[in-house]
Design a protein around this nucleic acid. Sequence first.
DNA 1: ATCCCGAGGG
DNA 2: CCCTCTGGAT
Length: 219
Amino acid sequence: MNKAKREAIFARLQEAIPEPTTELLYDTPFQLLIAVILSAQATDVSVNKGTRTLFPEAPDAAAMAKLGIAGVSRHIRHIGLFNSKAKNVVATCEILLRDYGGEVPRDRRALEALPGVGRKTANVVLNTAFGEPTLAVDTHIFRLANRIPLAKGKTVRAVEEGLLKHIPKAYLKDAHHLLILHGRYVCTARKPRCGACVLFDLCEFKGRFAAAEDGGEAP
DNA sequence: ATCCCGAGGG
DNA sequence: CCCTCTGGAT
């Protein structure tokens, strides 16, 4: 994969996706952090359904901590892993209040020290709330990176490092959402819509499931 | 490697 | 039914 090809890939994605941003609902960095914690192994639609009632009741760390685990749980029972998420959300709020005046630290290490926050969540918050050129490798980006391929790797960390090296700098800030949205709506896990893909001629995975779009079987 | 764990889609 | 969804902690 040469440089010109990588440039072309991101130029096309940018044209196809005019607003490369998150589909999670949030008003503040704090709310984004909570929404991302809730989004583990869950769809944005499912998370938004919970935060739409949770955030009005608990818009900040103080209110969320006061709401407590049972109170948070009530809003997120429909989301997978809700028990551990409710616990982590409240514990995270308590640390934010104790150490950061209730604000979200703009610092990778501080973020990763919060319960329920790992490298992926920290990267999303740094990118989306603070505009930093980080790249969170989630299930979608891991899949796309290996399919096209943009960066092959067996671990998310290897893929992240490969992508950071190979993505043209001009696209780095938006790369996370360009890739994730392309993965969500076109290069899906089960039945990729290769026929509608703007990267078709640049992709090695090309057409492998093209027949499946008509209900046929993959080779 | 295993657990956490609900909803929607195919 | 089985797979997938912006993972993290043990």
